[in-house]
Computed example of a mutant assay.
Amino acid sequence: MTERTVRLVHQATLVLTVLVACTNAAFAAFGVLTPATALRVWLGFELPFGALVLIVGALRVRVLRRSGTQWAGVLDELVGRVPATLMRAELRSYRALWFLIRGHRVGAGPGMTTIGYTRGTMSVPIAWLVASVIEIAVVHILVPWGWLRWTLLIISVYALLPLVGRLADRVVHPHLVAPDGLVLRSGHQIVARIEPDNLRRCIPRRRFQPTETGGDDEILFLPGPDGTNLDLVLAEPVDVVLPAFFEHRRRSALVSRFSIHVDDPAAARRVLDAVLLAPDTTR
């Protein structure tokens, strides 16, 4: 059986199973079907077709892996590129929350110095989270039906977790400084790796614009909501990959200067001077 045939069968059974399950649930909720009838439909149709979806899905994974597809590509093929990206992002957010609770910083270790870049960037998201929590509490009080109150509460809390996790993702993935170079990050995404002999100057400098990640005239901006506060000047241009939520939309560029936002630009300069930069009396 070819991969195309397996894919078509898998998609058809999946769509049919979801449609029947949603229709069955809706009819049961509005009283068109009795609970006993809905259960018989579930046992007689949804359960067997669900098993078929799993079997065909496993067969499809086997075909894809035999063709040399990586696991990330397998997930993209099974559920689609956009849903797969959302699933990976949600899993990463839970992982970031766990690391944040434990106080762990990804990549930190002996001989490695971290540079944070989240100070001052969390006020708006945190205010939004507080407003969402208040809204959840108000809805929970005002909705008269108990089953609906708890359903909305579970859905609301579940929807907040990935957002909190995305904020945590930036905290637990700081920039990294080591004797073998500097790694610039934006959350879990690595933007650039700079060799120690390629970093010429480190200059604390306040720029209020731009406030969006992007490149301009061989300069890469990694700003916070108030712009940037540290400039890095390179001896030779390096390849960078601009961060984007969808991996397939990340684009490459060649830059010789970075303008970034860090928690403490003066402290960051001292670290970079001590670890990477050779003494320079002209600075």
Rank of each mutant, 00 (worst) to 15 (best):
residue 2 T to Y: 02
residue 14 L to E: 02
residue 18 V to G: 01
residue 35 P to S: 02
residue 37 T to N: 05
residue 43 L to C: 05
residue 44 G to L: 11
residue 57 G to Y: 03
residue 59 L to T: 10
residue 60 R to Y: 14
residue 60 R to I: 01
residue 63 V to C: 08
residue 65 R to H: 06
residue 69 T to R: 12
residue 76 D to W: 05
residue 81 R to H: 09
residue 89 A to Q: 11
residue 94 Y to P: 06
residue 95 R to F: 10
residue 95 R to K: 11
residue 99 F to M: 14
residue 100 L to F: 11
residue 101 I to R: 14
residue 102 R to L: 15
residue 106 V to G: 00
residue 112 M to Q: 12
residue 113 T to F: 09
residue 113 T to D: 05
residue 119 R to H: 12
residue 121 T to S: 14
residue 123 S to R: 12
residue 124 V to I: 14
residue 125 P to V: 07
residue 130 V to H: 07
residue 130 V to A: 15
residue 130 V to Y: 05
residue 131 A to V: 13
residue 134 I to D: 12
residue 138 V to W: 12
residue 151 T to Y: 08
residue 155 I to E: 13
residue 160 L to R: 02
residue 167 L to P: 01
residue 171 V to P: 00
residue 171 V to D: 00
residue 176 L to S: 10
residue 177 V to M: 05
residue 185 R to L: 01
residue 194 I to L: 13
residue 194 I to M: 03
residue 199 L to T: 04
residue 200 R to D: 15
residue 220 L to K: 01
residue 221 F to E: 05
residue 226 D to Y: 13
residue 227 G to M: 10
residue 231 D to H: 10
residue 234 L to R: 01
residue 238 V to H: 00
residue 241 V to C: 11
residue 242 L to I: 14
residue 248 H to C: 00
residue 266 A to N: 08
residue 275 V to T: 15
residue 278 A to D: 11
residue 281 T to I: 06
residue 282 T to V: 07
residue 283 R to D: 12
